[in-house]
Simulated assay, not measured.
Amino acid sequence: MSTAVSGSTDVPFASAPPRRIVHRRTFGLGLLLAPGLLILTAGLLWPCLTMLQVSLQDRFPDPTGYTLDHYRAVLTDAYYLRIIGRTFLLAGVVTLLTAVLGFPVAWYLARSSSRRKHLIFLGIIAPLLVSIIVRTLGWTIILGNEGLVNAILRGLGVIDEPLKLMQGFWSVVLGMVHILLPFMILSVAAVVGKIDRSCLEAATVLGADPLRRFLKVALPLSVQGIASGSVIVFCLTVGAFVTPVMLGRGQVSVLAVTIHEQMVVLVDWPTGAAAAMILTSGTLVVLAAYGLFLRRHARR
């Protein structure tokens, strides 16, 4: 009896790794992480600090001092405020639409046993192999005055003059949803595929109808995938440049386009840098608020 007790008490101590092995593992993990962290620091932190410095200079190059006038000019001008609001509104609408449209597709990919889902998967990732410029050009061909949609409507006698389907907010939304929808689908599908089928079966046994089963079981268990996909889509939309320029045709100004105009066209680097820092800080604030919302939702 004593032998059994002593054996049972010796097992935890025998299975615990020595401190030397733990330190070696930690050191090895640090070596593996160091190159990636250095690249992130050099490619993200250093440019942000440089941009912050430029935004505080009274002029560029050859500054004579530092000032907050450029931030004040951007945050008090109605023109810039409309652009800031339009930028974040565009990102929010695109994120919402990709989540709504992408969730059913992601659910089908993750839960269906059909052989056709592999073809659908290929159809989802195929656009990622094509440049964003090429895909946006495709939408200009479809939505242009002499494009496919107007040609069909004219052929059917529905319209006499071409519709202005481009140069609008929703044309940019359409292009951005098409470009970023695969990111949302793949993010959600990765989480939906891990949902235990027994959870849904238990809800069915307890009398939950399909809608209640989705709202009370499937959707809460898919929040992590929706959250990760939303962050990716939101960040890519906030910084979008090519699609708003090509589909908006100068009528849908966003912060990325304004920053380019300030720095390249007007050669006003401090104001452009201030707008860039406002875009970066605003995005971080939105993501932090979104993270807090998800944490509170998870606690319930």
Rank of each mutant, 00 (worst) to 15 (best):
R72L: 01
P270N: 04
A14W: 00
S253W: 00
W170K: 01
Q251F: 13
R20C: 01
T280F: 14
A240D: 15
H70G: 05
L180F: 08
V5C: 08
G175C: 13
L292G: 04
K117M: 06
H118K: 13
N145K: 09
G43S: 08
A151Y: 11
K164S: 08
V188P: 14
G239T: 12
L33K: 10
G250L: 02
V217E: 15
S114E: 07
A91F: 10
F13V: 03
P61R: 02
D77M: 01
D160C: 04
W46G: 09
T67R: 05
S2N: 04
G65W: 12
G92Y: 01
G30I: 04
A274S: 06
L206E: 12
L49P: 14
Q262M: 04
L128I: 14
V254Q: 14
L44G: 01
D268I: 00
P182S: 11
V192L: 12
G239R: 09
R116P: 10
I83M: 03
F183S: 11
L163T: 05
W139T: 07
I159Y: 09
V252H: 05
G250V: 06
H297W: 05
T3D: 13
G43D: 04
R300T: 07
V205G: 13
I83H: 13
P127Q: 02
L255A: 06
S55L: 05
L215T: 07
A208L: 10
H70V: 03
I142K: 03
R249D: 15
I232P: 14
R295G: 00
T67F: 11
K117I: 04
S228L: 12
D160S: 13
A256S: 15
H260N: 08
L137S: 08
S222V: 05
G30T: 03
R20V: 04
G291A: 07
V105H: 09
S131Q: 10
L52K: 00
R115P: 10
V149T: 12
M246Y: 05
R19V: 12
T3R: 13
R154D: 14
G144A: 03
F27R: 05
L181D: 03
F27P: 07
C48Q: 05
V267M: 07
V173F: 05
A190M: 09
R249Y: 13
D62F: 15
I84M: 11
T243N: 06
S8W: 04
L255Q: 09
R25F: 10
H23Y: 09
R300E: 08
T140H: 08
M246D: 09
W46R: 07
V177W: 06
P17Y: 00
L143I: 02
A78W: 02
S112R: 01
T64F: 15
R59V: 02
R300S: 10
M51Q: 13
S171Y: 03
A276E: 02
L109T: 03
V238Y: 10
A73I: 00
Y290H: 02
V100Q: 10
A106Y: 01
S8N: 08
Y79F: 07
